[in-house]
Amino acid sequence: MPSPQPSSDPFEIPRPAQVPAIELIGVRKVFRRRERAHGRFSPRRRVAALDGVSFRVERGETVAVLGQNGSGKSTLVRVLSTLLLPDGGTARVFGHDVLTQPAVVRRLVNRVSVEASFFKKMSAAENLSYAARFHGLTSGRTRAGIPEILERVGFPADRRSEPMENLSRGMQQKVALARALLTAPVLLLLDEPTTGLDPRSKREVQAFVKEMRAMHDATILLCTHDLDEAEALADRIGVLDRGRLLVLGTVDELNRRYGAQTLEVAFFAATGREFGEETDPDDDREVFA
């Protein structure tokens, strides 16, 4: 693991070294959903998006959570981002409870998700500028800083003023990473950051994630269904299936546990399903999870 530089904590929030970056204890999230086939007045049924998930991520560590669509990966990220309230259990970020201290947690977390989450008509520079203000940065700090950060992620200088909608997905994800870097998150939540990118953009984004981790005291939680990406970026890998965390360990530990030669075989052994297989009878799960 690369040795991180000293903390550049933006808001001076206590993060004692002995406190894990992420700590989940029996986290549950259940959604209630009507059966589509039985009309709008049918009784609602419960769909567990997270079912007693417990794990810890140490400071400076990169952990990947593997799972198929609907496994609960995005729900997990949303709980840690304070966008969803868990129904049970405890979720803490650097010791701060997401339920009772959401404002503190929000200062420590940033997220890059599969959707770029930008105002489409606004330019990369404009999107970064207002986002920086949300994090308490003045225009004096961002005037020179935004062009530098965009240059760092390989964003062409002559396209800074172009509307985001004119940019490729790969380019938009670079801007999303630049935005995360701009606000110096100490916990970076990556929710399928390379899904839908071409191979070159994918490699660039992955290289940048490695660089972020090497240069900053950042902890990374990567949710993905890309086995190679998980193997390339993460120290440990967890398998999430139908809201339950089945296993969490290094690639070697996973392979040993399931007597597998590859991560794909280990995943199959853990879930009892092929990776990419869409056999989940609960088709509503994907709506939420």
Binding site: D9, P10, E12, P14, A132, G145, E148, L182
Partner: peptide
């Protein structure tokens, strides 16, 4: 790089 400056003190109230 990021635009945030290193911490210079820690608030005690968390």
């Amino acid at each position: 790089m990021s635009l945030h400056q290193p911490a210079s003190g820690v608030a005690g109230d968390g």
